[in-house]
Structures are given as C-alpha cells and as structure tokens.
Design a protein around this nucleic acid. Structure first.
Length: 112
RNA sequence: GGAGUAAAUUGAAUAGUCGCGCAUAGCAAUAUCGAAAGGUAGCGUGCGAGGAAAGUCCGGGCUCCAUAGAGCGAUGGUGCUGGAUAACAUCCAGUAAAGGAAACUUUAAGGAAAGUGCAACAGAAAAUAACCGCCUAAUAUUUUAGGUAAGGGUGAAAAGGUAAGGUAAGAGCUUACCGCUAGUAUGGUGACAUACUAGGUCAAUGCAAACCCCACCAGGAGCAACACCGAGAAAAGAGGGUUAGAAAGGCUGCUCGCCCACUUCUUAAUUUGGUGGCAUGAGAUAUAUAGUAAUAUAUAUACUAGAUAAAUGACUAUUCUUGACAGAACCCGGCUUAUAGAUUUACUUUAUUU
RNA sequence: GGCGAGUUAGCCAAGUGGUAAGGCACGAGUCUGCAAAACUCUGAUCAUCGGUUCGACUCCGAUACUCGCCU
C-alpha cells in the first residue's frame, strides 16, 4: 500500500481548484479544501508546457519528500493540491526553497 | 606538434541515514482477517530507465474484421548492379556522376524516337530557327529575288568544340584531335570497363520530386486492438435450427462471395470498475568456422524493469574531468533529430629535427 | 500511448510552378467650417531548414508549433 493517498480523477482536481482557498509562495501555490474523511489527500499537478518529463518528475519528487517531513504535524481532513508557479525557471528548483515555502504557506493556512 | 577523414566504445564513482515500485516455497512456529483454500501488512533478501527510451518516418510480429478468402488495380509506395534479411524508404560490396590537395564524402541514379502537357519576361526564333549581319544578281540609292549560318545581341537553356584547308560569302563541306552514337571482340554473375571498326542524316533541347509508361510490392484497422469477470437504470442482445433470397445496409474502394428474413430457446448489451494481453526473445554476450563485408551456422553462459496519475529521490561526506541531451508504457529490426566531455584503432596532409 | 489535420499582413482569408487577389483594422492624404461616410495611397522572411527545378507559397524530405478524434 502507498502511504500517501492521492487525488486521481479530473473532477476531484476541479472541485479543489474551484472551491478551495489558495496561497502563493515563491515557487509553489497551494489549494486547500475541506474533506469529510479523516485523512489528508494530496494532488500534484505540473503543466505539460513548462519543461521536459525528466524535470517534471524531479519536481514531483521534491514535493513528495517535503510532504513526508511535514505529514505527521498537519491537521487532518483536507484535500491539498500543489501547483508550480509558471514565472519561476524550472532549473532553479531546489529542496530548500520548497521547504521554506512549505513552512510559510502551511502556517498561513493554519494547518500546522 | 598542428589541421583533418573514417570506424567503434563510454555517458561520473564510493560510503552512510531516511524513503519508492515489483518479485519472493526467507521469518518451517512474525502479526492480522477467514471455516478452509488463501488474502493483506511488517521485517529481511534480490532486481529496478536509454543511446537515443524521443519523433512516429518506414518494415514486421501479435489481435480483430466470416476462416482473410478470389479478382480488379481506383489509390499509394519503391526504382543503377549484385548480395544479406522475417521484412524494408534499411544494411554490405561494387558501377557511374559530382566535390576535395589527399585520406575520403555525397547522390529518390529506370524511360523524353509510346503519348499528352509546360518552358513566364526577354528574344527573330523555345523546336522542322533566321532579326541584324555576310555574299551574289537585278533595280538604281533604296528596294526586290536568292544563297548562308561564321559574327552580334536575349535568355536558365540557342541546334557538337578547337585548328587548318576550302568558298562569291559560308557551312561536318573536307581533314586532324576531342566529344557523341551504333556494332563487334575481350573481361566481369551484372551495372559497366577496355580495345577495334563504322557513322557527318551527330535531325529530334530541357522538365517524369508534371500527367504518364515499364518492372516490382501493398486487403483494412490498431494493445485505448482484443478476451474474460463483477455491479447494473432503461430494453435489447447472443446461440441453435430451417430455406425463397428482393431492397437497403455491413465485412474492404469496387465486383464475386459471406451476414441479414422467419421460428424457437436462453440470458444479457451501452456505461463504469477490475484481471489478462505483459516480458524467453526472427533476443543479448563470448568463442570458433564460412564469407571482402552485411550476415549465417554451431557451442557455451546468464535470465537482467514491468508501472497504471505512473516507481530511481532527498540529505551528509570524499574524489575527479564539476557531470550534456534526456524518462520505458505491447514487442522487435532500421531511419531521422538532440547531445557536455572522455577513450581506442586505422589513415591523409603539413611543419620542425635527425 | 495510437491515429489524423493545419501554419499566408494586427485579424479573417483566396491562390497552387513564372515573384501574393480581396475584406476589416492601423497610418497618411483628398473632400468638409468640423466630424462621419466615400475615394486614393502605404505595409508580407507565405512557420523554420535543406533538396528537385532556369525559377518554389505551390513539388519532396526533416524540424518546430497549434488543433481534433479513439478509453
């Protein structure tokens, strides 16, 4: 079993993106909406036109690693969607900047 | 030492902590669910993305279209010769032409006296050539008739080239050399090459990546194909049997051929979810033999990704050349395109020294 | 993943071997006391690169980008 539950269908993403609140950081934006389940569910979406498949996979891995570190401290019962900011270059993506964004954004959303 | 040509290989490494996907007859008695078969989870162990995985440009396997069948050839593709291959717009060895000082490289390279078409503008004329010009005769100072294709100019392209003879002026008109065409002989499997002989009626330009002709090849669609299982609103679908076979429709663009109609019986189609298809193969590596080579044959070795929103990452430390292009998705053989750097082999040319 | 179309001025578009029609918009001018309408004029790397041809928007190949269909 995967430890991290993920969103899979298109309409699930649309529900979160249309009805949820959003917070913008340096490289990442977060959409949050409430969930009736007891656990958190994640979705990561990076558009097709930003970069290659290799770099898209790289960004997904960085976000998952950061989510693992924070996972146990979060409040439960939310859907979270992570998006990549189009303005930033993909080559500048690094672990530490995303870590700062995570702390900043999740405090702002009062999930921590 | 410099410049260059061809072929081939490689595509950062090591250790620690945390984490991901698949497999597991390890935990004989780990935990949990279940009556059982067995399922799930944990720990451990093993394996885990390229030379192009990319583009989808060609060729095949595999599946369905009735069992994929017969004919037509609409349409599409290929096009020097011989060989290799399951097959090929691929590869190997040669021929010819073009380029380069050389090593070497490039080429969709059949047919224009089978037929049709096109060749803008310019130019006299764009394919049975005659404007200016040169020459002769007449007229009488500007024209007419005839001969001629040297010279001029136009154009991408102008009716073999150079030299001498010859002539009223000229001309393959004649001769020599070069080119061109045909025939014969020799060599080669063949494309073709070499030598000899003949031809001045060497009059028929270019374009076939214009239609077309000739030779050869191709039935259509694609793993989101297809098969099976579960749930299940509305009402249709499948199997068997019988025979008169019309119309429309479908299988494949057309024809043949096949299906359809009627009756009876049974339960299940669209949609959605899951499982299989799915990893042992026209394969890989090494050696030997045959062959100039592509490749073929034999023997040995190992089994080496299989996901389904999609698995290789993060941090720390060390070393160096400071790391480019880039992510499998049914599989295989090629082509094309992107690519930091490093290494090896063979060869050409140039400079210096001996 | 597979299959198939397309790219022409700021926008819409015709053209198919001989140097790109037209409409709307922008700009300049004429007309008018001023404006509108009308009339005249202006503007093109035919997506990019290479090949065939005397000559390519057109024919052929490769690349880039955009769009559609199949669960």
């Amino acid at each position: 079993m995967r430890k991290i539950k993920t969103l899979k269908k298109n309409y699930e993403f649309r529900n979160v993106l249309s009805k949820g609140k959003f917070f913008i950081g340096k490289q990442i934006t977060i959409y949050i909406s409430k969930n009736e389940l007891n656990t958190n569910i994640i979705g990561i979406a990076i558009s097709n036109k930003t970069c290659n498949a290799v770099r898209r996979n790289h960004i997904k891995r960085l976000i998952r690693e950061n989510y693992k570190l924070v996972k146990n401290d979060l409040k439960k019962g939310y859907n979270i969607v992570f998006l990549w900011n189009k303005k930033d270059l993909v080559e500048n993506a690094s672990f530490e900047i995303i870590k700062k964004d995570f702390n900043f954004l999740l405090k702002k959303a009062q999930l921590l």
